[in-house]
Nucleic acid binder design. Structure first.
Lengths: 337, 337
DNA sequence: AAAACAAGCGCAATCGGTTGAAATTTTTAA
DNA sequence: TTAAAAATTTCAACCGATTGCGCTTGTTTT
């Protein structure tokens, strides 16, 4: 890198001290209007830009937030990043992205990385593997504000922003029942994740509301395209297969539809399917997928706003009360139900 | 943030100077083994972590790379980020993400942001709006290495990493012809983008190879789902519509298929469609989309590797020769052709 | 005319770590 | 025993910007 213009360069050329230049640049009243304009003029001429690193050191703040996320290549998460980046941008923060790739080990390394990078705060959605949260506790111990989103835990004293998974699941299953489904299967996420538990719970309660007995055999763990496709094939091959499917995400839902197509089963004629995410893909397939919109962009926005609020209220050490923000979900009815 | 353990804390507790502690921590031969172990032990005990910001200031380097990208919510770009992050991670770099949202104005601000954040290098894929590249020239003037990927320009003396768009387009159109298409339309990207020009050129040359006359009327500007859907409807409603479609990206291709479906036109029976991107979605729709894989992950990897190489060879000021790296594409044949 | 005051600017410390050179202590050789 | 050599350790400057405090000036008040 080329030599950057510093305050010292300006001071030398003008025969002033660096302190005067510094003050002149920020309109300090001690400085006479004459020197003030002279300094500013030269600064503009030389293309002076304050060295953020020096300020970072002095202020012990980087105006950067760390983002730890399972994987970017997933519509929901990229929508969230979008929301986060939007808020960060408007507040003059930068975002550093770290992917865990659903690996616990990598996630631990990521938490170290955000520490060494001295980010001001961290936004986290942890991996499917993560059972132990002590690496996040380490961040909190260092008094770095942490906000969890989507994948959250109550084991830590930290803010959370989540979609209303229970409500979304309830709406979805209720919808299937109202559309005439008698036997509804649920393709679930790992129960170690709160989203897995909440969505199962919504599924459960919607059944009960309509006096349909809950049958654990109708719940299978399948939250990826591959696992869901395999599971759907097995289930749909049986004679008395379910006539309704509620999948924990759109990929699983689409896998079910694919499997049905391959087996010559009509959607929504013979089986109906509802997904969760309202991803771009849901509107691309034919028939289009009914899905629960979890407003990833808004979720990202809210998470980032909450974090920025924490960063402002620095003196939160004593009376810290974790906040849990819930983003309402909405059922988008399309062709598969 | 809590008080972080500094080198000074260790020095005080051990009755040493900060310089000794600093050297001890990095196994400098001047320091006796005794003090060396003592320092390291205490450092481990206190959980000392070197303050990256202080090092940044001293070394005038942040071990951070800036990434300016149109939008994350796009499979191709998130695949690229994935590749970039992978390489950055392995080389102990962090990635700062800035989205332009296809806005020139925002992109200019982004270039300022990477400057103030003093990133070591920048990876750029510019917006569709961008015609003037002087904001990138400003980065180069500041001797910040810049590598362009996917959306590139020859107007700047900078490295480029692109998919072999010409080859991919040629393969796609050649494939359509071999499958029996007589009249092939092309849904193109803006000709201000090199990818737009290259893909059109590949389309053109593939036609010529088979002695099919090139007809400009068969080329429409439609590189989003919405515009493509509309254009496809218009075209397919006409009596003598084309029997083959080569779209500049998967979204456009899928839009064509959707339009065909809505008009009761069979794919691949009556018309055949080939996309470009090989996105996740291409394997989700029915029939599955034939598409040109442009290996986004590898493209990201290569771009990042190239940038890191430039960062190593700092003394490149005089004999700088821009490198253009081309990533081969591959036609993935599926159901729509 | 002397004291009080204000305006305008510079000194020096600070943030945390690194590093060439100097200073100190220890070891070795004469 | 003492000087020279070697082994350790400390000093001080530096990276770039900020800021409390003090130092000059010149002006006002009594």
């Amino acid at each position: 890198m080329k030599h950057q213009i510093t305050i010292k360069d300006i001071a030398n050329k003008l025969g002033l001290s660096t302190s005067t230049v510094s003050r002149a640049l920020k309109d300090h009243p001690d400085i006479s209007p004459k020197t003030r304009t002279a300094v500013k003029e030269l600064a503009g001429l030389l293309g002076y830009r304050p060295n953020r690193i020096a300020l970072n050191l002095r202020n012990n703040s980087t105006r950067t937030i760390g983002l730890i996320i399972p994987e970017i290549e997933h519509y929901f998460f990229s929508a969230i990043i979008n929301g986060i980046e939007e808020v960060a941008y408007k507040n003059d923060y930068s975002v550093m992205v770290f992917q865990s790739n659903e690996s616990y080990k990598r996630e631990v390394i990521n938490t170290q990385a955000v520490l060494t990078n001295r980010v001001d705060g961290v936004l986290v959605s942890f991996s499917k593997e993560t059972r132990d949260f002590s690496h996040f506790q380490r961040l909190i111990d260092n008094e770095i504000p942490v906000v969890f989103f989507d994948r959250v835990t109550d084991e830590l004293q930290a803010d959370q922003v989540v979609a209303d998974d229970y409500q979304g699941a309830f709406l979805a299953v209720n919808h299937l029942i109202e559309k005439g489904c008698k036997q509804i299967a649920h393709f679930a996420a790992p129960q170690s994740l709160a989203i897995g538990r909440s969505r199962l719970s919504g599924y459960h309660d919607a059944l009960l509301k309509h006096n349909i007995p809950y049958n654990p055999a109708q719940v299978v763990l399948a939250d990826t395209f591959e696992t869901a496709k395999k599971a759907a094939h097995e289930i749909l091959r049986k004679p008395n297969h379910p006539d309704g499917f509620f999948a924990v995400n759109d990929m699983s839902a689409i896998a079910i539809i694919k499997a049905a197509f391959e087996l010559g089963i009509k959607v929504p004629g013979e089986i109906k399917v509802v997904g969760f995410e309202n991803s771009k893909s849901s509107a691309l397939i034919e028939p289009e997928l009914t899905s629960v919109d979890q407003f990833g962009f808004d979720l990202g926005r809210e998470a980032c706003l909450l974090l920025l609020k924490r960063l402002k209220d620095v003196d939160d050490s004593s009376d810290f009360k974790p906040v849990k923000k819930v983003i309402k979900t909405r059922l988008v009815v399309r062709g598969t139900s």
